[in-house]
Amino acid sequence: MTDVVMDGGREVDDLNALYAASYRRLVVQMYAICGDLADAEDAVQEAFITAIRKRRTLRSVNNPEAWIRTVALRRLHRGWRHLAVVRRHQALDREPEPAVEVGPEHVALVTALSLLDPSQREVVVLHHLADLSVAEIAEDLGVPIGTVKSRLSRGRERLGELLTEREEPSHG
């Protein structure tokens, strides 16, 4: 993974570079967490809009990509709380149109991830897809390191079970 490294004292004066370097991978990370590509794109776009509006704040952070990821995650959390309920109704009327064709090779893992507890799924994705360390995840999510370790351990174990079940379907 190519990280956009920003020195603490250096101002982020080229949002274009950050956008070009990180938009796509942030979308995929959010997709792995929420299971809906359109929602993932919405979350990341909204996070960049927030970044543009709060450039001064963005300049002051050590890792702008991490900051934008956190904003996008908050957007997803908010969405889970409310919009799922709205969509319960909307799903009757229309299916959401994905912005990108997602192949079965991607769907399998995302489907398995969707069966994890949301807090475990988030930690597993941030660790394995965003390549964040346990300490970085703890800082980003504002939870203790021990909590991240425990969620990661349980999430990995459950994900392994789910993927194994998928590969070895019972023939009863």
Binding site: M1, L15, N16, Y19, A20, Y23, R24, R25, V27, V28, Y31, A32, E41, Q45, F48, I49, I52, A99, V100, E101, V102, E105, H106, L109, V110, A112, H128, L129, L159, G160, L163
Partner: peptide, 23 residues
């Protein structure tokens, strides 16, 4: 085992909108 690389490949299919439109 989870194949994270396959999921990363999805990155290449994502088309960012023009940053100017977000601005």
């Amino acid at each position: 085992m989870a194949d994270w690389e396959k999921l990363r490949e999805l990155t290449y299919q994502v088309a960012p909108p023009d940053l100017a439109s977000l601005a």
